[in-house]
Write a protein that binds this DNA or RNA. Structure first.
Length: 113
DNA sequence: TACTTGACCGTAT
DNA sequence: CATACGGCCAAGT
């Protein structure tokens, strides 16, 4: 396990429950701008047993990154909805659940809890 | 070594 | 909404 992986996993673990973040945002937050693909690759190699809110990571469009209907896709949708995140047609409205530019921030000026 | 793949992204058409 | 293009780059062939 190298530093890069550690930082990326940390960035993912830092996403608050009920919120989601894009691959690019995670990469940037880990100090690796432009390396969203690396994030995606790592998510496919998460060590067994490691606790990680992988399901809170979506494409920049808000779409779930896995093939619609696949096992992972359904699992991700289920977990997100369990946290109160709205998932419609495999997509989440980043305008409301994303880490930035969300409604709470706009109205109350309090991005995080 | 060379080429392909892929849980990606932003811009442009 | 869909396609195209250039970036990115570790792994697998």
């Amino acid at each position: 396990m190298n530093d890069v992986a550690t930082r990326i996993y940390a960035a993912i673990a830092a996403i608050p429950a009920g919120r989601v973040a894009s691959y690019g945002a995670i990469a940037a937050r880990a100090g690796l701008p432009g390396r969203a693909r690396l994030v995606g690759r790592l998510l496919g190699e998460v060590p067994d047993g490691m606790e990680l809110p992988w399901y809170r990571v979506l494409r920049s469009s808000g779409h779930i990154a896995m093939p619609p209907g696949s096992r992972g896709f359904r699992e991700q949708s289920r977990r997100l909805r369990a946290e109160g995140v709205e998932v419609k047609n495999g997509r989440v409205p980043l305008s409301r659940f994303g880490l930035d530019g969300n409604l709470d921030h706009a109205l109350w000026g309090m991005p995080d809890a």
